[in-house]
Each structure stands twice: as structure tokens, then as C-alpha cells.
Design a protein around this nucleic acid. Structure first.
Lengths: 143, 143
DNA sequence: GTAACTGTAACAATTATAATTACATTAGAA
DNA sequence: TTCTAATGTAATTATAATTGTTACAGTTAC
């Protein structure tokens, strides 16, 4: 099958970084350094999050990105839908033989349903949850 | 995230082709033509299915592949596990910042669980089910 | 007006996937 | 016993997908 790309992880990661500084704006440059990817890629993904109302951005000096809505209102399902929809679906050639002619359609339906299950599961987690888990681990590592 | 590769679809497709000829052996060449991929790729995947006891192969003249166990004993979960395990997991860089240091681990756990849900769902379908759905569609298209 | 940002398109580099080639091995049949 | 048709698998090449990079237009603060 085709798998999720890393945009999902990057989007979640970005949002976690934004919870950390709810007052001031974060730049794509600093976030990119944290996540070890290219600033342009960060801006692309954050652009998507902005268009969907999760964050705000400001151009120009002292600009950057900031959370727009509360992190406990953003579920992993939301981010999955935005970044990785249809990635579960296996690539499949059509088949020359009569019996296999519809195999692509049949597998498509099955993986559409499978993706719904993944969605139901991811709905149980919010960005705030992820942040809390990370914070807890942070403390554990210190002690 | 990283997604399933197309080996899953190819394995399922191959098994469906093998149900169709339970008596005589199918060659990788003829199956490859049906599925529009390269024979060597078919042999690689069928080799995996053989090593896991789902099919038998015979080398030499009049050789080929044939189902070893009943198609209603092979679930899509079995094939998923074989071909696509861990493909759901999103790629993620480690993070320089303290809070994000464990994000890779955290997302790994979440997607491990998500994959379990996918597994539970795929367990509901057998290769025989897929064959039956395809056969039904075949008839519908004819009429 | 200049420096520090975002927004995006275009292109280059890298990585992952799939096809191809090559050849050893096996089995049936003339 | 030799020829042909098949699998098994490694190595290489080609193609596709992903990611990084460059470039530059538009914005905003000072």
C-alpha cells in the first residue's frame, strides 16, 4: 500500500512547538531548526494549517506563526485528514483477466473503510494530549 | 506518514488469481501479465507467501505456483502483516528542543495502536471473500 | 528605506520503489 | 543426457516520490 508521508508528523510537531509559545510568534526558521527540516517545508505545511483555521501567521518583521484555536480542540484526526488522506490506499494496477478487473475498486473500498477506523482512533487524541504526554516524559527524563 | 507499499495489493491479487486455478500451476509470467508488473517482482512476493505457508511453488518445466491452504483461511490481516507491517508509521526527525525530544517515540506508539485497529478490521476479510466480491461484480458487469 | 518575515513557484538532490538483467538451480520430456 | 521451461535471488538500472534549495514577490516593524 501507499503509506502516510511525513507531513502528518511535521504538522503535529509544529503544533506542539506552537503550544509552547502561546504569546509570541514562532518563525519558520526556528521551527525548522528544531525539527531538522527546511524552513520552506515548514511554511508549506503551516500554510495548510492556516488555511484550515488552526493557526495564524503574520508576514514581515516580527512575524511568524501562532496557534489560533485551543490545542484541545485539534484532534490528530483533523491533522491526518489534512495531510495524509488516502495515503492508506494500496497502489494497484488494473487486471487483464476478467475476475481481477475490479480488484482496484474492491481494495479501494476496503481501504477507505480501514482509513475510517484509523480516523476514529486518531480522533481520541488531541494536540494538547500529545503535548501533555511529551511534558510528562520530559519530567521523567530529568528525574 | 509512511504508507503501505503496493506489495499488499499485489499479494492479494496473486492469491485471487491462484484461487481461479486450483488444479494447475500458474507461472509468474502469466500472473505478471495479468497484473501488469514484472515477473521477478511477482516471484519475490510469491516467495514470501510460500515461506509463510500460504502457497506452494515448483521449479522447472511445468512448474509454477498453487494455493496450499484454503483461501477462506487466509485473512487480509495475514497478508498485511507480511507485506506492509510498520508502513503506517510516520517518518519523523528527532527534535532539538526539550519538549519535542520524545515526539518520535510518542507518535510511534500511537501509530502502532492505529495499525492494530487496521489489523482488526482487515481480519474480517479473507481472500475467499475478495474472490467472491469480484465474482459477483463480474456477473453484474456481464448482465 | 531597510531588515526580517511569510507565500509560493521552480528547480535540484535525494531516497524509495519498481523494472530489468543475469545467472544458478530444478524438473520434465524428447 | 541434453534441451526447454520454470523458480530463486542478487545486482543493477530506471522511474517515481519526497524533500531540500534557490529565488523572488509581498508584508510589516522600526
Amino acid at each position: 500500500m501507499i503509506m502516510m508521508n511525513s507531513d502528518f508528523a511535521l504538522a503535529v510537531h509544529s503544533l506542539v512547538l506552537l503550544i509552547y509559545s502561546p504569546e509570541r510568534m514562532e518563525t519558520s526558521k526556528s521551527m525548522a531548526e528544531s525539527m531538522k527540516v527546511h524552513p520552506v517545508r515548514v511554511r508549506k505545511i503551516l500554510s495548510l494549517l492556516r488555511k484550515n483555521g488552526y493557526i495564524e501567521s503574520k508576514e514581515g518583521a516580527k512575524g511568524g506563526f501562532i496557534l489560533k484555536i485551543s490545542a484541545d480542540k485539534i484532534s490528530l484526526k483533523d491533522i491526518y485528514r489534512l495531510t495524509s488522506k488516502n495515503t492508506l490506499k494500496p497502489k494497484c494496477h488494473s487486471c487483464n483477466c476478467e475476475i481481477g478487473a475490479n480488484i482496484e475498486d474492491v481494495l479501494d473500498v476496503i481501504f477507505y473503510k480501514a482509513e475510517e477506523r484509523v480516523g476514529e482512533f486518531l480522533e481520541e487524541y488531541t494536540i494538547q494530549d500529545i503535548f501533555n504526554i511529551l511534558k510528562k516524559r520530559c519530567k521523567e527524563n530529568r528525574s
